[in-house]
């Protein structure tokens, strides 16, 4: 697995990544952050494309930069939209398969298979210069996985894709994670990261602000009580019970008087007490929904 320890990268006086420590495990991890957070820098460091200024990044204990053995196990899909434009899509992928040590006939077969995997159809035979942005993204992804790497680093892979292609790509990324690959996907599109994974790594000004499963991260944001929506037939009775609980910060009514929005300081305690209450009396609970136990809320609370 890929391990980063106190990983830092500076560009002169500008900090790209600052003392990041992480372990990339099998499955899909979403890498989030605003523009300039350091996502591309981190991906470049993990992919062995740039050297750390301080700290280390290793694959099973081996440094990655300039190490062919490590690079053979990593596939990187860069964010930049640059190619050898005169090449055809499948030819481009086959060339990079060849550079990974795959003999030519097998490289061509694997290139075709990689293009199938990313749903690049007949367009694979076109010159890259004639392809749409979405197709070019698919070519980039195909070259990242043509040599069957254990680790996939995808920098904004959904950029420029139409909704159908996005859905296909999200499904493919999930498949790769489920197959046991370590996949790190950076994206600005929170709802699509949520569709791929619940495990996130949130970067802000080069530092890791949060990492882990979204609900765990959400619970750890102690300064922001969890908001829970309840709708029930006897909202007043429920509200009067809730307000006395130490885990409840506030209760407010809404809608037709049957809606409650509850700010919860301790989700675990609230859940246990609510289950106990519901087993003792009938309040006609219809809906119980966390309002901000999601990626968008986590992102907003931590970054905004």
């Amino acid at each position: 697995m890929i391990r980063a320890e106190n990983l830092s990268r500076w560009y002169g006086l500008v900090v790209g990544v600052n003392r990041v420590s992480l372990v990339l495990e099998p499955g899909v991890t979403g890498l989030l952050g605003i523009n300039g957070a350091g996502k591309s820098t981190l991906l470049s460091l993990l992919g062995g494309l740039i050297r750390p200024t301080a700290g280390s990044v290793t694959l099973d204990g081996q440094p990655i930069f300039g190490n062919p053995k490590a690079l053979a196990r990593i596939g990187t899909c860069p964010a930049s939209d640059r190619f050898w434009e005169e090449m055809r899509g499948v030819e481009f992928v086959a060339f990079l398969a060849g550079l990974s040590g795959i003999p030519r006939p097998e490289a061509l077969r694997r290139a075709e298979r990689a293009c199938d995997e990313v749903a690049l159809g007949e367009e694979r035979g076109k010159k890259i210069s004639a392809m749409s942005k979405g197709m070019r993204q698919k070519v980039k992804m195909a070259q990242a996985l043509v040599h069957d790497p254990e680790v996939l680093l995808l920098d904004e892979p959904l950029n420029g894709m139409d909704p159908a292609s996005r859905a296909q790509t999200v499904a493919a990324i999930r498949r790769w994670g489920e197959a046991g690959r370590c996949v790190l996907v950076s994206s600005h599109l929170l709802h699509e990261v949520e569709a791929m994974t619940s495990r996130i790594l949130l970067l802000h000004y080069g530092r890791v602000l949060a990492s882990g499963e979204v609900p765990q991260v959400r619970q750890a944001i102690a300064s922001r009580p969890l908001k829970v929506f309840l709708r029930c037939a006897d909202a007043r009775t429920l509200a009067s019970a809730l307000i006395s609980w130490p885990s409840v910060a506030s209760v407010s009514f809404g809608g037709d008087g049957r809606n409650l929005t509850v700010e919860v300081a301790d989700a675990q305690d609230f859940r246990e007490r609510l289950m106990a209450l519901l087993s003792e009396r009938e309040v006609g609970l219809e809906i119980l929904n966390p309002l901000d136990d999601n990626l968008a809320a986590v992102f907003a609370y931590l970054v905004a």
Partner: peptide
């Protein structure tokens, strides 16, 4: 200059 260096440097070829 053309931005294709990541593809070459990211491959397991000794530099």
């Amino acid at each position: 200059e053309g931005g294709t260096l990541p593809y070459l440097l990211g491959r397991p070829v000794p530099r």
